[in-house]
Design a protein around this nucleic acid. Structure first.
Lengths: 162, 162
DNA sequence: CTCTCTGCGTTCTAAAATGGAACTTACCGT
DNA sequence: ACGGTAAGTTCCATTTTAGAACGCAGAGAG
């Protein structure tokens, strides 16, 4: 499969990964949530090569995850800001944070990154909940709606665990 | 930065991405949630080269996302099953599904992948909620606990959007 | 006016990862 | 003996990436 084809798939996971699925993109977005927004800063913080950074930022602008905002005329300089689509990736960050805290810390050598939920004031662990009943979502409780074509490579994510 | 260094970072997002952050890994895991568990099936469904598939499966076994389960003696054949750590990636799948449905479908050409939450019987949209108060989580409501070292490349994810 | 600095890339070459196809091994059924 | 199945391995051409140097357009200092 050519990589570019992913963006055309009917599976939304495949489409998401056509943008996010590489070694640097999600790290760049992580740092954007940390308020980094300039080329030099991304480069220094991540240690990514300038070439790749330029490439990824352009792609993310093209895909509407970042927007360029002029902050200086002559020479023109832009900040890379998260768009609405980019900000909507915050759950991805939190979910990866939680997974990394729990499962990428076998020897306990890394202190977990924890958050306080300001409105209620408690240390919180984000959970995926049903928008209708509010209950926490478990793998086997989810049933995909299958009014779609189903060839092997594009079948939707089922809710049934192995 | 060497890629391998990512796994040693204090940032849990970086550690998660040290396993998940490449072109194929999350697609392989997606298909595992679709109940695929054999080499040949992954290969056919994804169109990934056998070389890479072998590589990625071994890495995921090593990192405790998959476990090998013998299903045939002589010759020994194994199925690749999600471990507890692997099953814990389900929220990642759902969050990527939701993002792809919403933001990777500009022209509306892809039908959204929707789910029914069986316990309540409604079509649902998974939301990240606070484990303590149950309210939906928004970027600006989250405050990281900063009792950790904070060098540039490893500062934790703040809750403050740009 | 020259000199250096900042910010953001681009260019270059070498090293690494990937794609695609053929090959291997060990068994099974007929 | 022969074809089929399952899970890789091997080989080579093509792409990507890393790392460092270079380019360029101003800004500010002397």
């Amino acid at each position: 499969m050519k990589w570019q084809e992913l963006g055309e798939k009917n599976c939304p996971v495949a489409r998401s990964l056509s943008i996010l699925g590489d070694r640097w993109t999600l790290l760049i977005i992580r740092n954007a949530f940390l308020r980094t927004c300039r080329f030099e800063d991304f480069q220094k913080q991540l240690g990514i090569t300038r070439h790749l950074l330029s490439d990824r930022l352009n792609r993310l602008v093209e895909k509407n995850v970042f927007k360029k905002v002029l902050y200086q005329e002559a020479p023109k300089r832009y900040e890379y800001k998260l768009t609405e689509a980019g900000l909507a990736l915050y759950p991805v960050m939190l979910v990866l944070t939680k997974w990394g805290n729990t499962w990428m810390n076998e020897d306990g050598s890394h202190p977990p990154l924890e958050y306080v939920h300001k409105p209620c004031g408690h240390k919180t662990s984000p959970e995926l909940c049903c928008s209708e009943c509010g209950e926490e979502i478990h793998v086997r409780d989810m049933m995909p709606l299958l009014d779609r074509l189903q060839d092997n490579a594009e079948s939707p994510l089922t809710g049934i665990s192995s």
